[in-house]
Every structure is written in structure tokens, then in C-alpha cells.
Amino acid sequence: MVDLAALEAEARSSLAQATDDAGLESWRIEWLGRKGRLTGVLRGVRDLPAEERPLIGAGANRLKGLLEEAIAARQRELSASASEGPALDVTLPGRRPPLGSLHPITLTRRMMERTFRDMGFDVVEGPDVELEEYNFDRLRIPAGHPARDMWDTIWVADDGSGGPRQLLRTHTSPMQIRYLERRQPPIRVIVPGTCYRYEATDATHEWMLTQIEGLVIDENLSFAHLKGTLEAFVRRVFGAEIETRFRCDYFPFVEPGAELGVRWQGDWLEVLGCGMVHPEIIADAGLDPERYTGFAFGMGVERVAMLRYGVRDIRHFYRNDVRFLREFDQFRGAG
């Protein structure tokens, strides 16, 4: 009776001794060659008593397969360690695949959008070239109203076609009106978008700026919900420990109106304007202002980006100097 298990053990231990191609080859000849030991067992099967033949035959065949796998594995193992290669100067520079980037305003806008999405807000956009009617009149800022001075406007030239007066929107607030034209409460939406001001540029003023507008209308909403929502936003953007305050401010389309400030590196800084949606805006949308109330807010994305990333001059954003854009690589994925 042949002890196949002992044979396998012996074959494996001798295979482990083989350290190069020559060793492997002599092992192969010893075990699997035409005159090899396992080949001999297989040949001898037909001489075995009939009752042992199937058992030993199958076992030896299986072992042949196992040993063939084993030598192949050993071969791979040896060739891998042989090809580890020479020692390199690992301090040499690598071949760098290019690193792309989102613009810091996109990065910040998305972070702000994500924060509002987490609170159930929808995100929509509106036109940059806006009708005077939507940018001003329907927001309770008729021509001649002193509040128009709050926004220095870039106007679209009259093309003589008798069409409506157009301008570059001075804020994203017109979308409050446009969204109310197509949606019914409950309303919970933010509107990111580019706005324009006829304003000399300096370190803190750009004529082109990015705003995020918000509008929330439902039954039973009060100033408390305005505070709760915007405080939650500010905590998520500036950290849980941020101190906030609301002071009275004026925007013609809200009443009461407020401004949210945060204490940033010791100083109180204005972050956004907000207020309860003026009842006339709600009534103009065909809703009952006694039943529906809500709040609106607007904030500058550049401002938030400047605070979060310590950017001192707003004009960097649209100069598009790659050396500046590259600075934001470190925030990739961190939002």
C-alpha cells in the first residue's frame, strides 16, 4: 500500500528547498518527470490489487495536480523575489499625475449648498440678466424708492425694441418671486447665483459676486425658525462653537429684517441678511399671509470663502491665477 500523504509531505518539503530554476527543474524531474516518483506510483496502479486500484489511482492523480500547482506557485514566488529590483533613491521627485481643482468659489458654494440640502432645502438657479420688475419692483423696491440706493445697478442698454427694462441682477432675491410663481408651500429652497454691482473694486468689494438666497414658506413659521435654521447653518460652516447674533437691519422685502453676525477672531462680522418674508410678497404670490409665513435670507459666497480660507483680497477669486487656485488643493474633499 502506497502512503500518498507521506509522499506529498516529502515532495512539498523538498520543493521548499528549491531556490532557483535549476532546483525547481530537478525537483520536477524527481517527482513529476517521466521516471519521477509520482509518475512511478501512477504507472504502478495497474499492478495493484483490483480493490486498491481506484483509490490509489484517484489519489495519485489528485496529488499530481496538487504538485503541479505547488511547483507553479513556488516558481512565481521565486521569480517575484528575484525581480524586486535595485534599491532606488526614494527622495527623487515622483512622476506626478496632474491634479485638477474646483474653483474656491465652487468649493465654498457646494459646501454651503450641501449644508442646506442636509436641512431639506432644494437648490435652483435663476437668470443673471434680470428684469427690473423682478429685481426691484416686485420686491417692494419701486423706482425712486430710497432703498434702491442699497444696490448700485449695472443696466442693460435699451435696444430700442420697447422691451422691458433689464439689468444684471444685484441680488439673487428675484428668484424668491420666480420660485413662488411655480411652487406652492411648503417651500424650502436656496438659490446660488452670480450677482453684479456697479461698485469700484477693492480688497473687499468686487463688482461680480456670488450669492446664496434662501426662501422658506409654510404654515406656522416664525422668527424662531429663521434663527434656528440660520444658526444651524452657521454652526456647520464655521464650527459648533461659533458665537452668533441677530441685529435689526432693513431689506424692503422682509419684515422684520435682520442681519446675522458671527464673532470671528474676536470681531463681529456680518455674514448674511435675513428676515420674515413681507406679507405683501406672500399675498402677491396668491397665498394668504395670515396662514402662510416664512423667512428669506441672502449671503455672499466670497465672504464665507474669505473667512474660512483666510483670503484677504476678494479680487484674487476672479483673477484665476493658478498659483492662487492651487492653494485650495489642500481642501480637496474637505469642503
Partner: peptide
């Protein structure tokens, strides 16, 4: 004083997005 008014999280249903 706005800072003396209460503060509450938003209640109610989340509208479907557009």
C-alpha cells in the same frame, strides 16, 4: 432684542426638489 427671541429648528415636511 432679536437675541432674546426663541430659536427653533424647522418643522414640517421637506418639499420635493425641483
Amino acid at each position: 432684542g432679536y437675541d432674546n427671541l426663541p430659536s427653533e429648528p424647522l418643522p414640517g415636511a421637506v418639499p420635493d426638489p425641483d
